[in-house]
Structures are given as C-alpha cells and as structure tokens.
Simulated assay, not measured.
Amino acid sequence: MDSYQHYIDAEVGLWLFEMKKSPGLFSRLTHGVQGKINSIIPEKIHKAITMAIENMVKAVITGSAWIVPKADPTMIPMVRENRVRERIKWYRNTASAEGAITGAGGILLGFVDFPAFLTIKMKMLFDIAALYGADTRDYHERLFLLYIFQLSFSDQKRRNELVGLIENWDEFKSDLPKEMNEFDWRTFQLDYRDYIDLAKLAQLIPIIGAGVGALANYRLTEHLGRFAMNSYRIRLLKKSEGRLGQVELKVIE
C-alpha cells in the first residue's frame, strides 16, 4: 500500500469518527430550538418550501448530468483527488463570489442566493462523482448525491443515522426510494434549512451581507466537498476489499 493510500485511510477513519460521535449539548439544544420553530411554522408554508426545494433540486440533477468531467479509470488516487480538489476550489470560489454579490444587495438579492447557491453545490457534486468514476445517469448514483448532500447539511443526530447508509450503499440502495417522488423531501429541506439558517442569516443585513455571504458560501462549499470526497472514498475502499476477497477465495480454491 502506498503512502497516499495510508493518507486516505487515515482521513476516512477520522471523518467516520466525526460522523458517528454522539450529539453534544449544543447540538441537542440547537436541534430542540429549531424543532420548536419548525412546529410553529404553518403546514402550508412547510409544504410550499418542500415543493420549491424539491423542484429546484430535481431541475438541477436532471440537467447537471449532461456536462461533467471525464474520469480516466487508469488515474492513480493522488492524481484523481488532486483533480477533485481543483473542482472543489473552483466551485468554492464561484460560490463565494455569488454570496458576496447577493449579500451586498440585502434581503431582495438574498432570496436569489438560495437557488443559485443550491445549483452551484449540486453541480459540484456531479463533477466530483464523475471524477470518482460514478455514472450519474444512473438513478441510484443521483440518489447517492442527495444523501451526501443531506449528510453534509444535517445535525449530528441525523448524521449518526445517515452515515451507515453511505458506508453500506450497495446493501442499502435496493431498499431506497424507487423514484425521486418517493424521496423524503420534507426531511431533506428541514435538515438543509436548519443547518444553513444561522450561517446565512446575517447575509441579509446590508453592508455586512457581502462579507458574510462570501465567507459562508466559501466554507459551506468546501464542507460539502470534503463530505463528498470521503463518501466516494468509502465506496472505492469497499470495492477494493471486495476484489481482494475474490482473489483470496480463488487462491484458497
């Protein structure tokens, strides 16, 4: 095993430890407060927001699969991941610029930021998937992107629930929603909104909104990129283990 593979193993192990640790006091308090706020919001509003986010995400994941970088199956892990980091950097800088522009406009342009930033993040996921060799024309691969997104923008309790699905994707995917309409969009939008509300709220304030928007988008995009990298690393490691297991069986036979 080369040194870079050791590096990947260490990063994945640390990331899984972060995903599986118990929710802290602050996380539990924040989740409780957000739950109370969501319970106050009328059901009609929840339905409207859920439908809006569902339609936005569906539009992006339908169109984003057509233009993606080509992955060379012969690329060594270090080269592939350097290309992934370049894509994350490009989208991170694009999202930061978009956040600065919409943040400078206060509340009105702040509403424009939501779909624009969502599109940037989803398109980045498609590029990362392609570089790791995933065929995003496959429905299950698009569903995997939604779970990466949800894992990235959820509280620690939800991460405890979702990380096992990412770890054991091949075992779980046959039991998952058979089409996009069956996906739990309500939970998806609540997790996403609850996670980014605090980070993005100050972006709506004139004067400081530009700086806040640029920094928030920068950090949130990099955060999503890290989660995507580790999610695909786990899948590749699982495949490698499977191939090694097959070789061992042949040797035994």
Rank of each mutant, 00 (worst) to 15 (best):
Gly35Met: 05
Gly103Asn: 01
Phe126Ile: 03
Thr119His: 08
Ile101Gln: 07
Ile40Trp: 13
Ala52Gly: 11
Glu182Gly: 00
Gly110Thr: 12
Met19Arg: 14
Tyr7Lys: 14
Leu25Ile: 12
Gln156Val: 01
Pro23Trp: 01
Leu29Pro: 06
Asn217Ile: 00
Leu146Gly: 02
Ile207Thr: 06
Met51Gly: 14
Ile107Thr: 07
Lys44Leu: 09
Trp185Met: 04
Ala134Thr: 09
Ala134Gly: 00
Val57Ile: 14
Leu151Cys: 08
Gly105Asp: 13
Ala65His: 10
Ala59Gln: 11
Arg83Trp: 00
Pro206Ala: 06
Asp194Glu: 08
Arg158Met: 12
Met19Leu: 13
Ser231Gln: 00
Ile208Ser: 01
Leu165Gly: 06
Asp194Gln: 10
Ile67Val: 10
Val112Glu: 05
Gln203Val: 05
Tyr218Asp: 08
Leu109Ala: 11
Leu25Gln: 02
Thr187Ile: 02
Leu145Ile: 09
Tyr91Asp: 05
Gly103Pro: 02
Trp185Asp: 05
Leu176Ser: 01
Met51Lys: 13
Asp127Phe: 09
Leu198Met: 08
Asp9Phe: 07
Gly99His: 02
Leu215Arg: 07
Asn181Gly: 02
Ala95Arg: 03
Ser231Glu: 01
Ile61Asp: 05
Ala52Cys: 05
Arg87Ile: 06
Arg235Gly: 12
Ile128Asp: 10
Asn82Val: 01
Ile49Pro: 04
Ala116Lys: 09
Ala199Met: 11
Val112Pro: 02
Phe17Lys: 15
Glu171Leu: 04
Ile128Trp: 07
Asp170Arg: 15
Gly164Arg: 10
Met56Asn: 13
Leu224Pro: 02
Met56Trp: 09
Thr221Ser: 12
Leu237Lys: 12
Phe172Asn: 13
Ser96Tyr: 00
Lys173Trp: 05
Met75His: 12
Gly103Thr: 02
Leu165Tyr: 08
Phe149Ile: 01
Met78Trp: 04
Arg243Asn: 13
Ser27Arg: 01
Gln150Arg: 12
Val247Phe: 02
Ser231Ala: 15
Lys47Trp: 07
Glu171Thr: 10
Lys250Glu: 11
Arg137Lys: 14
Phe183Asp: 11
Asn82Lys: 15
Lys157Cys: 00
Asp194Asn: 15
Ile37Ala: 10
Ala52His: 09
Ala202Pro: 11
Pro73Trp: 01
Phe144Trp: 12
Phe172Met: 11
Gln150Pro: 03
Leu131Ile: 10
Arg85Phe: 07
Lys123His: 09
His6Thr: 09
Gly105Ala: 08
Phe17Ala: 15
Ser64Asn: 02
Gly242Lys: 14
Ala65Asp: 05
Arg92Asp: 03
Ala65Leu: 10
Asp155Ser: 03
Ile166Ala: 06
Ser27Met: 08
Ser240Cys: 06
Ser3Trp: 07
His140Ser: 14
Ala202Cys: 02
Ile8Tyr: 00
Ile166Val: 15
Phe114Gln: 09
Ala214Ser: 12
Leu201Ile: 14
Gly245Phe: 10
Ile207Asn: 08
Leu109Pro: 02
Gln5Ser: 08
Ile88Ala: 03
Ala210Gln: 00
Ser39Gly: 01
Gln189His: 15
Met180Ala: 07
Ala130Phe: 04
Gly103Val: 00
Met56Arg: 04
Val68Gly: 01
Gly63Ala: 11
Tyr232Arg: 13
Glu98Ala: 13
Leu16Phe: 13
Gly35Gln: 03
Asp155Trp: 01
Phe17Glu: 15
Arg243Phe: 10
Leu131Phe: 05
